[in-house]
Amino acid sequence: MVSPIVIAHRGYAGVAPENTVAAAVNAAAVDETAMLEIDVQPAACGTPVVIHDERLEGRRNGRPLTDASGLVRETSLEDLRTARVLDTAEPIPTLTEFLEAIPETVGVNIELKTPGTSELRVGESLPEADRDDRRAVWLPFVERVVDACASFDGELLFSSFCEGALAALRAVAPAYAAATLVWNDLEAGLEIARRYDCEAIHPPRNAIAGTGLATTSYAGFSDAEPDIDVLEVAHDEGRAVNVWTVTNWHQFEQLAAAGVDGIIADYPGLGAVSSGD
């Protein structure tokens, strides 16, 4: 069995302040880490910043996400840079700062979270009549993201739950690898992957048929066995399958045994535990 690559979710969010430079540097130093997974969205000025939530006052296990409040897209870059993440000294980094801080020996999976609007069309395979409009919504932000990545020579993989983001990426920088993130519709995810010739597809952990996780509810899926074997279909079409988000070695072991290509994990070392190393 070939072991899946390990992708550090927000820089291993289970052990470090998520989406920060400190988390990324520490995660990159872990031998098993093949890629870092991060989220980007625009500040009020359009500069790409690395943060997951649309609002600054979200919470993680009882802690405030930051010591600031308001929508990221309505907050100045200066104010964002003075915000601190999860009661630590770590600031919200710009994408440029983030990429400059990490070694180019580790790849980066950049999730295009939002272009600065609340209308996202998450998880939808768009009708043809809507595709140009959604691409246009995303295009200015994706251009800024691609510009920020220009000097980074490590591996880059762009992903999104939004078809418009992938359409904009293919228009701006078709040479970069792309992945469609699946929310609650496997067929839609596969349709989008085919439409934009995506190198990968990223389903949630309970969308892999035949595993014990497939009958547990998570993310947008119920506890019913998936009606599509997304792993088989994607592999038949030549696409990698990277699964999110794994939080313990039991989950890691099942997904590795199923033959997924990558596991997006909150903690380092889960593969070593499951293999008995």
Score class of each variant (00 low, 15 high):
1 M>S: 14
1 M>R: 12
2 V>D: 14
2 V>I: 09
8 A>R: 00
17 P>W: 04
19 N>V: 03
20 T>P: 02
23 A>T: 13
29 A>K: 14
35 M>P: 00
47 T>Q: 08
49 V>W: 04
56 L>G: 09
65 L>E: 10
71 L>S: 11
71 L>R: 12
73 R>S: 15
75 T>R: 01
81 R>V: 05
88 T>H: 05
89 A>E: 13
92 I>P: 02
93 P>N: 02
99 L>G: 03
103 P>Q: 00
117 T>E: 11
118 S>C: 00
124 E>A: 15
133 D>N: 07
136 A>M: 02
139 L>R: 04
142 V>T: 01
147 D>C: 00
148 A>N: 08
148 A>Q: 06
151 S>P: 00
159 S>G: 07
169 L>V: 15
178 A>D: 09
182 V>S: 09
190 L>H: 11
198 C>P: 03
200 A>I: 06
204 P>I: 03
206 N>G: 07
207 A>Y: 01
218 Y>C: 02
221 F>C: 03
222 S>P: 00
228 I>C: 09
228 I>T: 12
229 D>F: 05
230 V>A: 02
232 E>P: 00
237 E>H: 01
239 R>M: 11
241 V>M: 04
241 V>C: 10
241 V>H: 06
247 T>C: 07
254 Q>V: 08
256 A>F: 00
258 A>S: 10
259 G>M: 11
264 I>M: 12
266 D>S: 09
267 Y>T: 10
269 G>C: 13
273 V>L: 15
